[in-house]
């Protein structure tokens, strides 16, 4: 049983721990307020601030992603907002993607941390662009007919947040939806993120799912997606328990706070902060990848 010590710059282990808890808490809180997981911040923070190997950072992140999903999904599942059938259908693609991504990370890329660091950069930049351009697209009453969606009864109902009116929606674009779900799954297994940043816009704009339903459904799916990857990392020995415990606990409390106060948060400014931090992380990851910074 090896021992891994992670410290921040010249700080003592205890101070480093406090900073780690604060960073993970912030990742959870900002993520929850914006309706995304904390993984997008967490992995770059662990790599860039604490000098953690990216495999270990990804494994810690993916475990915390399960915690966030399980904690955040239960209420919406019971209230009926989550489209459980749609989630199960898309999970066929996200779970395969999660498994494939994680297997690639622990086998082919096991000795190639730099490739993973570089792989993170486009994902982070796409996420930043999606967040910057995201908006709530209203559902249309009669989308193009999708026989598979009809056969699997993927339609649903939700109560409009502003109007309070119960509305039904019909799902379309099941094929393109599966493709995006598969890509979200691969990025989850490979990079330790939840992938909601890709699934939510895909469900909203391509599958005619209302934004709130898409967010709840994505959150629900992420537990299964991340578990497919996490089980691989756990037994591959990349899950460093002494790092995972404080990260999961802090992300978890951050998520609770972010969800409780999220509707008071200045979402516009948080989005700018989100995009700014992600772009900065991408630049620093490139610098790390080419060896310009230690």
């Amino acid at each position: 049983m090896g021992l891994v010590i992670v410290t921040l710059g010249g700080l003592s282990p205890l101070l480093s721990l406090v900073v780690l808890l604060a960073v993970a808490f912030a990742a959870g809180a900002v993520g929850a307020a914006l309706g995304v997981g904390g993984g997008l911040f967490l992995v770059p923070a662990l790599v860039l601030l604490f000098g953690v190997d990216i495999h270990v950072a990804i494994a810690a992140s993916i475990v915390s992603v399960i915690a966030t999903s399980s904690a955040a999904a239960s209420n919406d599942v019971q209230s009926g907002l989550t489209n459980v059938r749609l989630a199960m259908f898309l999970e066929t693609a996200t779970a395969v993607g999660g498994l494939v991504g994680a297997v690639v990370a622990v086998t082919i890329l096991a000795a190639h941390s730099n490739i993973l660091v570089f792989a993170f950069v486009p994902v982070v930049l796409i996420a930043a662009a999606l967040m910057a351009s995201s908006r709530d697209r209203d559902v249309v009453p009669n989308p193009p007919d999708d026989p598979l969606a009809r056969r699997l009864r993927l339609e649903g109902e939700y109560v409009g947040p502003l109007t309070g009116i119960r509305r039904s929606y019909r799902v379309t674009g099941t094929r393109v939806g599966l493709v995006f779900a598969g890509l979200a799954g691969i990025s989850s297994g490979l990079l330790g993120i939840g992938g909601g940043i890709f699934k939510v816009p895909a469900m909203n704009t391509l599958m005619n799912v209302p934004l709130r339903v898409a967010t709840a459904t994505s959150t629900f799916m992420i537990g299964v997606t991340a578990a497919a990857g996490a089980l691989v990392y756990l037994f591959a020995g990349d899950v460093v328990l002494g790092l995972v415990a404080p990260v999961v606990l802090a992300v978890f409390f951050g998520t609770i706070v972010g969800r409780a106060f999220g509707h008071h948060a200045p979402v516009g400014r948080l989005k700018v902060l989100f995009v700014g931090v992600l772009v900065l992380a991408a630049v620093l990851m490139v610098a790390r990848g080419v060896g310009a910074i230690p």
């Binding site: 049983m1 021992l3 891994v4 721990l17 790092l243």
Partner: peptide
């Protein structure tokens, strides 16, 4: 045993 210390693996 912790600053941020931990055992590797299962």
């Amino acid at each position: 045993t912790a600053g941020i210390a931990g055992s590797v693996g299962a």
